[in-house]
């Protein structure tokens, strides 16, 4: 065993050394953030960024690796949040069952994954734009259903006072513990997506995206791969949904309303659906804009309510000029710089 490892180390560096320095710097900044950032930044800005990033990551997985743009991810996340409120404890004592955390978290993820899988099984019967339309229609049906149903989802008002459990003597809703909780979940989800994308399943899924006929001819079950992708993405979205309900301490139909569903798409597309880091970049841009745009807009003499206009125009600009998002802009800029400095391809031309 040791012989093999030695030989490998001689050919290529250890995996730790292959991580680019940018990642070390990013990790260091994120881990030491509580030392120099305020509670508002930690809880509201960074916590929300990681949560939205996780949910958008599940969309990125489906869209980037599976070629299926699904708008159901926010509803799946909200479903997980609802399950936490229903099976755990909340302010609505008539409905909530108050089970312990080690029971209701798996139940929530399981139910949300089941929901996402059923929707996925319906959606994979169609392709391209039809998938968007069908998932959008189902997402809106979910929104109206939760708003009208009072026996399970408590209708218009939803659930309040849904807080994370007091584990290991830590109040997880305090700024610093919550920051590390969301950071940890985001890192796990990111690693899971990267791992799955390189595993045989992920490679087969990318093959299905590029050429479903050929993959079917090679003996792969195309439909099963797509549905399984929905299941995996739903688990990730469910994790984001549970964190979301803990951060807001409440969940209501509006959590998965049409604007919220569209926002997840905006985040994923603005960040770039080509790579798993994209959704987090998009989420950071979105959260920073939504947190600070009222100040910015009033500085320009506009009313602070025009936030959606700003987001919409920014989104339009990104999809108009760079279909692969901010990441695509960055990559093109780097490619251009590399071309400029390359003496063979001509610096000045």
């Amino acid at each position: 065993m040791a012989v093999v490892e030695d030989r490998r180390a001689g050919v290529q560096p250890m995996w730790v050394e292959r991580i680019p320095p940018v990642w070390w710097a990013l990790g260091l900044i994120l881990l030491t953030m509580p030392a120099w950032a305020g509670d508002f930044i930690l809880f509201q800005v960074m916590g929300w960024t990681f949560i939205l990033g996780i949910i958008a990551l599940s969309l990125m997985f489906l869209a980037g690796y599976g070629g299926m743009v699904s708008l159901i991810q926010m509803s799946v996340a909200a479903m997980a949040g609802y399950m936490v409120a229903i099976f755990g404890a909340s302010g609505v004592a008539e409905i909530s069952m108050g089970l312990p955390w080690w029971l209701y978290i798996p139940i929530a993820i399981g139910v949300a994954a089941l929901f996402g899988t059923i929707v996925g099984a319906l959606a994979v019967r169609t392709a391209g734009i039809y998938t968007i339309m069908i998932t959008l229609a189902i997402a809106s049906a979910f929104f109206y259903f939760t708003r009208q149903n009072y026996t399970i989802f408590n209708g218009y008002s939803g659930f309040n006072l849904v807080v994370p459990p007091q584990l290991f003597g830590v109040d997880w809703r305090q700024a610093v513990p919550f920051y590390y909780l969301t950071l940890g979940c985001a890192a796990i989800c990111y690693a899971a997506v990267v791992y799955v994308s390189r595993a045989p399943f992920g490679l087969a899924l990318q093959g299905v995206r590029d050429n479903p006929r050929r993959m079917a001819a090679l003996g792969f079950n195309v439909t099963a791969h797509r549905v399984a992708a929905y299941t995996f993405a739903s688990v990730i979205a469910a994790i984001g949904g549970i964190l979301l309900v803990w951060q807001n301490a409440q969940i209501a139909p509006g959590t998965a309303g049409i604007p919220a569903v569209i926002d997840i798409l905006v985040i994923a597309v603005v960040g770039g659906i080509g790579r798993p880091i994209g959704p987090f970049i998009g989420a950071l841009i979105y959260v920073v804009l939504s947190t600070f745009s009222p100040d910015l807009l009033t500085a320009f003499g506009l009313s602070g309510e025009r936030f959606n206009l700003l987001i919409g125009l920014g989104f339009l600009a990104v999809v108009f000029f760079s279909p692969d998002g901010v990441l695509g802009l960055w990559e093109r800029w780097q490619a251009r710089r590399a071309r400029m400095s390359d003496p063979l391809k001509g610096g000045g031309a």
């Binding site: 798409l265 597309v269 919409g312 989104f315 339009l316 999809v319 108009f320």
Partner: peptide
Amino acid sequence: MVTIGLSV
């Protein structure tokens, strides 16, 4: 995407 942005 563009029409979603336009509708927003």
